[in-house]
Simulated assay, not measured.
Amino acid sequence: MVHVILTHEVKDFFAWKKVYEEGEPLRTKSGIKMTGVYTSVDNPNQVTLTGECASAELVYRFMSQPELKAAMQAAGVISAPDMKVLNKV
């Protein structure tokens, strides 16, 4: 099991959140379980997500899907994601 922390900036958090919630089936199909959604106290449009997945390979495969890239664009993501894939020790 790996843990994922992903941060990116969006144009409008509430518009992004709607598209994010609609993406649950794609995440489930890909084996990604999200465990948290956070916004920065300094910038409410800077979003950090946490999640879990069986392997790093599945995470990277999920992140490279054209459907995800299209959804992120539709959601108003305006910065490249900063992603960390971690092993719990």
Rank of each mutant, 00 (worst) to 15 (best):
V10M: 00
D82Y: 11
K88Q: 10
E21P: 03
S55D: 08
V2W: 07
K17W: 10
G23T: 03
L6Y: 05
P66S: 13
A70K: 12
P25Q: 08
Q73E: 11
L49Q: 06
Y20S: 02
P66L: 06
K29F: 11
F14L: 13
S64F: 06
F13Q: 00
K11Y: 00
T50G: 12
V2P: 01
N45Y: 05
A56H: 05
T39Y: 08
V89G: 12
V19K: 10
M1N: 06
A56N: 09
E21A: 08
T35W: 00
K69A: 13
M72N: 14
E9F: 05
K18L: 15
R27I: 09
L68N: 07
Y20F: 13
S30R: 07
L6F: 09
V41E: 06
M63T: 07
V59Y: 04
G51L: 06
V2K: 10
Y20P: 00
A56E: 09
K17M: 11
M34R: 13
P81H: 04
V19M: 09
N45A: 02
H8W: 13
Y60V: 08
V37N: 07
F14S: 12
V59T: 06
K29C: 01
K69F: 04
V85P: 01
K17L: 12
M72G: 06
R61T: 10
T35D: 05
H3R: 14
S79D: 02
A71H: 07
I5C: 10
I78V: 15
I32E: 00
E9G: 06
S79K: 02
I5E: 06
G23N: 08
T35V: 04
K18Y: 12
V77S: 03
V4G: 02
S30D: 08
T48M: 14
P66H: 08
D82T: 11
I32Q: 05
Y60M: 13
R61I: 04
V59W: 03
I78A: 00
E24Q: 12
L58I: 05
R27D: 07
A56S: 09
D42Q: 13
R61W: 08
E57D: 14
T50P: 14
G51D: 01
K88N: 04
D42M: 15
M72R: 15
T35A: 00
A74Y: 02
E22W: 03
A54D: 09
K88T: 09
Y38P: 07
A80D: 12
R61K: 10
I78M: 05
W16C: 00
K69H: 14
A75C: 03
G31L: 09
K88E: 08
E9M: 05
E9Y: 10
R61Q: 12
W16I: 01
E24L: 15
S55N: 07
M34N: 12
L49M: 09
T28V: 14
M1T: 07
G51A: 03
G36Y: 01
R27N: 02
Q46K: 13
G76N: 04
P25S: 06
E24F: 14
